[in-house]
Design a protein around this nucleic acid. Structure first.
Lengths: 191, 191
DNA sequence: CAGAGGCAATAACATTTGTTATCAAATTGA
DNA sequence: TCAATTTGATAACAAATGTTATTGCCTCTG
């Protein structure tokens, strides 16, 4: 029978090898959380204590500037991980919010589980490294894009990278992700 | 007597503890390289095989877009480390150039030395982690700045963070670091 | 020391992008 | 279902930023 942890198991084992003993130990430790649309999963100025695996739904990671304006940093659809890795790694207050854009079910991987995983999974360190690299590369690409691409370029790129986002996310969030106003995005689309 | 490795020793031991045996082993492995002004230390599309410690002088890390325009990514003055960590970690082709803006002396830390350091230094892993975190945080801040700050804000911030840069770097490099044209930077300064 | 090239300031103009306001359509929630 | 809210498009205008060209100064190099 399909269960709540099928997808996270599938995702993890696509990165590292996990045997039955290992999985049996860890699968008992996961917690599951249901979020209503618009609910906040992580609040800025609090420490990000978990990594979240999205079972279903959609999350948005964003931050606010001094004037309270939001910038969408990342969108996380089902079957992917979400966290503020900077805050999580250092256990320092986060600058980000994580919010559900749809009713969302997440699997919670606590900091303790991660540390435990480094010890008890044969390839735990590798999993950690892979996730870190994934984040690092995400950041690298983002900086490059902001420097070298026009908003229109970034919009097109985003269509390729996250086709799901355009269908499911209000346009002003997409505009803030591209770092332009929603009026401007609307104009760009007419080209 | 002062020698070439004094500063790198000082810098490393400010991050982790290194005893005499450890240092004696590693200090023999460093290589030193002299660069003339404008010389290229790392070329885009090649693999970044080393971490460089700047003994004296000044490096600029930059990349080019499709039209051949340069964006300055980072400036590295004496007594700090320079590398393309993305390329170095994964041993994949770099997107960056590293160039000397002044006559510069660097100490070369090869990939092999780094791997060796992880094993033979008691706190080698910690040193690696700290450097990774430093880069990660640098990237985080850069993204936040690009999203939430105006060019003028970024200029002021940069004055605080890298006071040395403004004195020693041609203004059009600073403009490209701020992601604006040199004409615009010139205008901003008159405020 | 002299010429060449690089650099910064400036002006004039063009383009991009933001802001505000308005309206209609779609969505939501009681 | 219906009112309230959200959303996306559009127009008109304002502000930010880029481009090109010019000038004078400085620096380097032979």
């Amino acid at each position: 029978m399909p269960n709540t942890l099928d997808y996270i198991h599938k995702t993890i084992t696509s990165i590292i090898e996990v045997n039955n003993d290992e999985w049996n130990y860890f699968s008992g430790l996961f917690e599951v959380k249901e979020l209503k649309k618009k609910e906040i999963l992580l609040h800025a100025d609090t420490i990000c204590k978990n990594i979240y695996f999205v079972n279903s739904g959609l999350l948005r990671i964003y931050f606010t500037d001094n004037n309270g304006r939001e910038s969408s940093f990342h969108f996380v659809p089902e079957h992917d991980f979400a966290t503020d890795y900077e805050s999580f790694l250092q256990q320092t207050p986060s600058k980000y919010f994580i919010q559900a854009l749809e009713d969302t079910q997440v699997v919670i991987i606590s900091n303790n589980m991660v540390l435990d995983g480094f010890k008890k999974l044969r390839y735990g360190e590798k999993l950690g490294r892979k996730l870190t690299e994934k984040y690092f590369i995400l950041y690298c690409k983002k900086i490059q894009a902001l420097y070298t691409q026009t908003p229109l370029d970034r919009y097109r790129e985003m269509n390729k990278l996250f086709p799901f986002v355009l269908q499911r996310v209000p346009q002003h969030y997409i505009a803030s992700y591209l770092n332009i106003s929603s009026v401007h995005l609307s104009r760009l689309k007419n080209e």
